[in-house]
Amino acid sequence: MFRRHRTALVVLATVSATLSLTACGGGSARPTADLAASKVTTIGVNAYLWRASLDTLSFMPLLQTDSNGGVIVTDWYVNPQTPSERMKVTVSILDQDLRADALRVAALREVNQNGQWVSAPVQAATTQKLEDIILTKARDLRRASIAG
C-alpha cells in the first residue's frame, strides 16, 4: 500500500512540476524488442504497458478501460494542492510489443476562472514525462517477470 501511494505522489509531483515547464520533452529511444517476452495473448495489447499504465494512473478516477483496444481514460482529477486546476488523461497502447512508440498519452487541463472551468494548455513535457514513467515501470515489470 505504501508503494502505491509513493508512486502516486511521484507521478503527481511530476505532473505538477512539468505543468510549469515551458520546454518540450525530448523523444524516446526505441528499445530493442524481445518478441517472445513482450508479446501478449490474453489481452489485445502489451500486458506490461497495460499494467504499468493502470499503476501509474491509479491515483486518478478511471472512466473507461478497454484492455482489448488498449485505451484508458481517466475522469477529471483535481490535485488537492492546486484546487483551481484539473487534469484528464487518456492512455492509448497501440501494439502488442513493449516499445516506446506503442504508447501514447494525451492530457487535457482546465483551470477554474470565476467558477467556470476553462481549457488551458498542457505542456508537452507533461505527457512526455507520463509516457517515460509508464515505459520505465513496464520495463521493470518485464525484467521482474523474466527474473522470477
Rank of each mutant, 00 (worst) to 15 (best):
R51H: 07
W117Q: 02
N112G: 03
G148K: 15
A100F: 01
V118G: 02
Q116I: 10
L49K: 01
G27W: 00
V89N: 04
Q113M: 06
G44Y: 05
L12Y: 01
T42S: 15
E85K: 12
I43D: 06
A125Q: 11
T41A: 07
I43A: 02
L21I: 07
D34R: 07
G70Q: 03
V78N: 04
I134Q: 08
M87L: 14
W76F: 04
T22H: 13
L49S: 04
A138L: 01
M87C: 08
W117D: 05
L63E: 15
I43L: 07
A120R: 02
E131P: 02
V78L: 11
M87Q: 09
Q113Y: 03
D101I: 03
A106S: 14
V10M: 10
N46F: 11
D66M: 03
L57D: 06
A17W: 08
A107H: 09
I134K: 03
A124M: 10
R30L: 06
D55I: 01
L12W: 01
T7H: 12
L54C: 06
Q81A: 15
R4P: 00
I133Q: 05
L63V: 11
G26H: 00
V89S: 06
Q113F: 04
R143C: 02
T90A: 01
A102E: 10
V91G: 05
V91A: 07
W50A: 03
S84I: 11
Q128R: 14
D95S: 06
S67E: 15
D66E: 03
I146K: 06
P121W: 03
A29Q: 11
M1I: 09
D140Y: 12
T65W: 00
S58G: 08
G148Q: 15
L141K: 10
I134L: 07
T127L: 03
L62I: 14
T22M: 13
R104K: 12
L130M: 08
K39R: 10
I93K: 06
D95E: 05
L103E: 06
F59M: 14
A17F: 12
P80I: 10
D140W: 01
S38N: 07
N46Y: 02
T41C: 02
I133M: 05
A102N: 11
A100H: 03
L49D: 06
Q81N: 14
L19K: 12
L49V: 04
T74L: 02
A17G: 10
Q128Y: 10
T90H: 02
R104F: 00
D97M: 09
A36F: 09
T127Y: 02
L19R: 15
N79E: 13
I146V: 14
I134Y: 00
K129Q: 14
T126N: 02
L130G: 05
R104N: 09
T32P: 07
E110H: 06
A52E: 04
T18A: 07
V111D: 01
T74I: 06
V15T: 07
